[in-house]
Simulated assay, not measured.
Amino acid sequence: MGTLAWWEVPARLGVALLLGAGVGLERQWRSRMAGLRTNALVSIGAALFVLFSVLTPEDNSPTRIASYVVSGVGFLGAGVIIRDRGNLRGINTAATVWGTAGVGVMAGGGHFLVAALGAAAIVLANVVLRSMARRVDRREVERDEGPRSYRFRAVCRDADEAHIRALVVQSLTAGGFALCALDSEDINNTGKVAVTARLNGQGQGSGQLEQAVSRLSLEPGISSVSWRVGDDEEDL
């Protein structure tokens, strides 16, 4: 087998398989999209590409092949990222697949210790840092859970006032806010009305209001939508 002993190819592929499966086992246990088989296959594939360059040294450089593996796995990782209601899901899984390819490259190159350390680091990052991230998120939520007041304002055509008032109430209460007051005011000789809502939120932040603004801004009768923290009488 060229510059390799007969046992080195199966040994490198075996290590790539075991380490990739070890990384994927944690993903499978958490019911992620790229689980046991995916990470094992990514690791084996990366090892095979590196082995090809090792077995044909006159035509290929292992480092150049490794750079191609990184680019190819980048496209694969992008396939597990999903946009869900403005939020991105699967980024951690995509990063795990990318790291598993690195493990496979190391195993294919015969650097077994580095490959094992890399796989262990990936699993530790997914397990240990997960709980740490949740604690940080929980503290952030607890900090924002105090009651807050908001003022929301939408400018619409006079003929659409009743419809827009109903939409404002529906959108804001659906976000978990308590509606304290809803007022309408004619804008001088413009044929438009300003619908103003005063709200209280217990733990609700700007994200829900931004979603309500996005929904209402699509209404053809609305010319402007704005909001801010506080319920004082200054203009928005």
Rank of each mutant, 00 (worst) to 15 (best):
V128F: 10
G86P: 15
A107S: 14
D84Y: 11
R30K: 15
R85W: 06
V80M: 10
V73M: 06
N126D: 12
T100R: 04
G104W: 03
T3F: 03
R85L: 11
L129N: 14
G104L: 03
E26D: 14
N39W: 05
A5K: 04
D137N: 01
G24I: 02
N60H: 08
L25V: 07
G35W: 06
L17W: 02
R83L: 12
G74P: 04
L51A: 09
H111Y: 11
G99E: 08
G118F: 09
G74L: 04
T100V: 15
G45E: 04
G110E: 00
S31G: 07
G14Q: 05
S61D: 15
N87D: 09
L18G: 07
V42T: 04
R138E: 13
R85I: 04
L55G: 07
V114A: 02
A133S: 15
R138K: 13
L88I: 09
L88R: 08
G72F: 07
A107G: 10
V73Y: 04
N92V: 03
A66W: 04
V128A: 12
L17G: 07
H111S: 11
L17K: 04
N126F: 07
G74K: 03
Y68P: 08
T100L: 06
G24S: 10
L117Q: 09
A46Y: 01
V127W: 13
N60P: 02
L25F: 11
H111W: 09
A47N: 10
F75S: 13
V103K: 03
T93P: 02
T63G: 03
L129W: 15
A40F: 01
G14V: 05
